[in-house]
Design a protein around this nucleic acid. Structure first.
Lengths: 211, 211
DNA sequence: TTAAAATTGGCCAGATCAGGCTATTTCCCC
DNA sequence: GGGGAAATAGCCTGATCTGGCCAATTTTAA
């Protein structure tokens, strides 16, 4: 039996969802609330398996709710619900640890299917949302940032060493060149990358996925 | 009218897919091939809108196919097809630029739905695949690396500054403390993280997702 | 309440780095 | 063949960082 709790500020929708869940053989709604202000105490006595979480709620909203759930009930599965697919909060939710993302306008079967999906370890989401996730996630590898700063081959070698935490000396030994040469390459790298220290260069390189 | 091309080494499946497509009002299969060895010339005369691409094919396989398509026909949409959801090639395909990922065992309606999804700019995928993408993308589902080195709150502040490329002085100014104090915290950080320079600390912090 | 840990501040010597300069050799492209 | 970029090597000065040391105060935990 899958225990479900509903968070939504619309009373009518809460009741509709409750009804929908009650029609399922192996699901049971064990609570519905209009916001997450008392989430921790709400669920204490009987933690649910799945939480249907509206994003936009007055008071403590769904994003805070996800964080609270992850902190206090790490095993509880969370399905976010929103009206728009291009909600900017999408990534905040997913990063905060939501398991799925289903539109409110989705047909009931999709929602039920989504509940089964998360229970089975999946992450149900609409194709449009999946697209955004993919883009966000493959942005760095797909776009070729290696030439962002137009670093030469040797400069890339040296930047690679810097990222590994090597000192000038160690780089010289690693690449069989003089420390002076290393120093020169690094100077050139700084110019091209518009930084002024190893740490800045390393941070920039890693964040922009150049190496 | 959506023009579709099929790549699959199984003749029977190619014909089944062709038949399925032919049943749709607004789709037309304009070609099917058993591998991607002549992909570029195959599609030259009449580039398709959507390609259904099997991953595992003898000769030039689907992954190479995706790369060829992206290079020569960047606007063509690609739906990958495989038997297993945990295929290691999954990420290679998605990174190479596949638009969707549908299981071979999926019902026909799902495939047709997926074709419409990619045409509408979505990225159809099964919940299990979406889950893997999400995990790969947020890279910290279970392990809380923040306490990996048992850094104190203040040490985390300072490490955060280091990652941003700040110098000792800048950190002192940022946190309203003496440069000497910064120096002490950094020394402690080095001890705990087992490193000996800012760049090493930054590289370690970013790679292990501590900050 | 007491002990431990965290945070703060300080000093100093030696090593390292940042950024200025010049110069030679190699390689690729026009 | 010539121009230009890349890679190499060298020097120097001042700034910065590393890693010892010590000690006061505050916060946290036992």
């Amino acid at each position: 039996m899958i225990k479900i709790v509903i968070y939504d500020d619309h009373k009518a929708r809460r009741e509709a969802l409750r009804l929908l869940v009650s029609f399922q053989q192996d699901m049971r709604c064990i609570g519905d609330y209009e916001d997450c202000s008392d989430l921790v105490s709400n669920l204490k006595s009987d933690p649910p398996d799945v939480v249907l979480m509206d994003i936009h709620m007055p008071g403590v909203d769904g994003i805070e709710g996800v964080k609270l759930l992850r902190k206090n009930y790490p095993d509880t599965l969370i399905i976010m619900q929103t009206i728009f697919e291009d909600d900017d909060n999408l990534f905040n939710c997913l990063l905060a640890g939501a398991n799925g993302y289903i539109l409110k306008k989705a047909p009931n079967e999709k929602l039920i299917e989504g509940i089964y999906d998360v229970v089975n370890g999946g992450a149900p989401m609409t194709p449009a949302i999946a697209k955004r996730v993919l883009e966000h996630f493959s942005k760095k590898p797909s776009t070729d940032n290696r030439h962002l700063y137009d670093l030469s081959r040797r400069e890339m070698d040296i930047l690679g060493c810097l990222v590994k935490g090597y000192s000038h000396k160690m780089i010289a030994a690693e690449l069989f060149i003089s420390p002076f040469t290393v120093n020169n390459h690094i100077k050139k790298i700084y110019q091209k990358m518009q930084v002024h220290s190893v740490s800045e260069a390393v941070a920039t390189a890693i964040n922009k996925k150049i190496v």
